[in-house]
Design a protein around this nucleic acid. Structure first.
Length: 426
RNA sequence: GGAGAGAUGGCUGAGUGGUUGAAAGCGCUCGCCUCGAAAGCGAGUAGGCGGGUAGCCCCUGCCUCGUGAGUUCGAAUCUCACUCUCUCCGCCA
């Protein structure tokens, strides 16, 4: 959420940002109109309330002195009615303003390149050349099924499309990856581990920006106020909702493993095979709460932390900076580390690292005091995958496959796999 | 699921219709004291939304005592609904 005061003072900035994102900027004028109207009403009703307060204390005094209060009470009864009506109108106006405010995306940082869609994202760096195979490499869904470690057919029987059952070494590989990633981030990057609920309420979803705009992407538990989280970003960022932190608390670094759930409405036909796009997948997420001045440095470090996972696993990757048309609703700046996927013949997103500045903090009301007694200010929040587990399994299967159909276990993972060096068909 | 108790400021905790936005304590900040510190003493210390003035200093109004409605001239205080927490019982991995 943007600050209404910023919009009031510099509407052009917000309109330009919407245009750069390729969105309609006319909401800004509508918003300002409502805002002006609201302030006018607030001013009026507050004058009435002041009058009511004054007369009420006069009535108290008159009663103590045994004077007649009938006239004053009658007058105030009318004033009270009037106040109620106006408060109603103001409440409607505020609802409208907040609806608009919640639907306006963040302003991209000045370092974000202009572009209309993902085709204009900018590659920032590459690590390692993709391996060249002396045989025809297979896709991970074939490798996994042949090894008996991925079972898509039974998954579709028990659940449906876009689900997977992991079996044997496949299940262990997944568990090993989660442990490996969390150990790396807690042990070497200074993150504190969190294990969050995967069901959260509406308020949390609004706090991080999934709602109200992207309701169709979410699984909602019918008859309840619970949503299945699309990422651990939601519960972990909302950990400090409506809190005022002290400067000493910052920066806060959290790492959280969770299952993630996405309805994937509107992606029919895309990535239908394999582990790339599932309704349920595992992810290790990194979340930071930092002082405003530091958030862009923190973003670079965060991306580096995600990249370190891929380097340790020796998976070739590149990092892409999102352009204005692809930066995402809540982010001011975003980098996507992408892993090389032989079956796709290209790099595939395996992480997404964003600086939200105070966009989420304002929605979720997460503040801090720069020093004792100072006015509370909004923190900056960041998060990034560190990294997506399902896609990492896919990348390992494909990049580490051998001509005989077996898959070599990356060295960094072997301690977590009971020393297993190679996954072979049983 | 049943019965009961509760929800007040950074924290603990008073307050059952009218100078209570809120006692007291703790914490924190500043000052005094001290060579310095502690102790002691004194002062200060919620957030939000408007208006004035104007770069976050200051003045001023309104709102906020879990959330939402209601009663009333006036609600932290009375009524109703909801949410959450705790205790006991039941059920259960």
């Amino acid at each position: 959420m943007l600050d209404i005061k910023t919009i009031r003072e510099d509407p052009k900035l917000v309109k330009d940002s919407l245009v750069r994102r390729g969105e309609d900027s006319s909401v800004v004028d509508m918003l300002l109109l409502c805002d002006e109207e609201r302030r006018k009403l607030v001013y009026e009703v507050e004058k009435l309330k002041q009058r009511r307060n004054e007369v009420s204390s006069e009535i108290a005094k008159m009663k103590r002195e045994d004077q007649d209060t009938k006239g004053a009470i009658l007058e105030m009864r009318e004033v009270g009615e009037r106040i109620k009506e106006m408060d109603d109108t103001i409440r409607q106006m505020e609802k409208k303003i907040s609806d608009i405010l919640l639907s306006i995306p963040n302003i991209p940082h000045e370092s974000v390149p202009y572009g209309k869609d993902e085709s204009e994202n900018v590659e920032v760096r590459r690590w390692r050349e993709p391996r060249s195979f002396d045989f025809e490499p297979k896709a991970h869904w074939d490798i996994g099924v042949n090894l008996g470690i991925l079972d898509f057919e039974r998954a579709s029987k028990i659940s449906g499309a876009r689900f997977t059952v992991l079996r044997g070494a496949g299940a262990r590989l997944s568990r090993a990856l989660v442990a490996f990633m969390i150990d790396l981030h807690t042990g070497e990057h200074g993150y504190t581990e969190i294990y969050p609920p995967v069901l959260v309420n509406t308020e949390s979803m609004i706090g991080t920006g999934q709602l109200p705009k992207f309701a169709e992407d979410m699984f909602h538990c019918e008859g309840t106020d619970y949503y299945l989280i699309p990422t651990a970003e939601v519960p972990v960022t909302n950990l400090y909702r409506d809190e005022i932190l002290s400067a000493d608390d910052l920066p806060i670094y959290h790492v959280a493993y969770s299952a993630c759930f996405r309805a994937e409405a509107g992606s029919a036909g895309r990535d239908t095979r394999g582990l790339i796009r599932q309704h349920q997948f595992d992810k290790v997420e990194l979340v930071k709460f930092v002082k405003p001045g530091t958030s862009y440095d923190e973003l670079e470090k965060l991306v580096g932390n995600a990249e370190e996972v891929l380097r340790r696993l020796e998976l070739p990757y590149r990092v892409v900076m999102m352009c204005t048309g692809d930066v995402g609703f809540a982010a001011a700046k975003k980098y996507d580390p992408e892993v090389w996927m032989p079956s796709y013949g290209r790099y595939v997103e395996i992480s997404s690292c964003s600086n939200f500045e105070d966009f989420q903090a304002r929605r979720a009301n997460i503040r801090y005091r720069s020093e004792p007694g100072a006015k509370p200010e909004y923190v900056h929040t960041l998060n990034g995958s560190g990294v997506a587990v399902g896609r990492t399994i896919a990348a390992i299967l494909e990049n580490y496959q051998e001509a005989d159909g077996s898959v070599v276990v990356p060295e960094a993972l072997r301690p977590y796999m009971g020393g297993l060096r190679r996954i072979e068909a049983e």
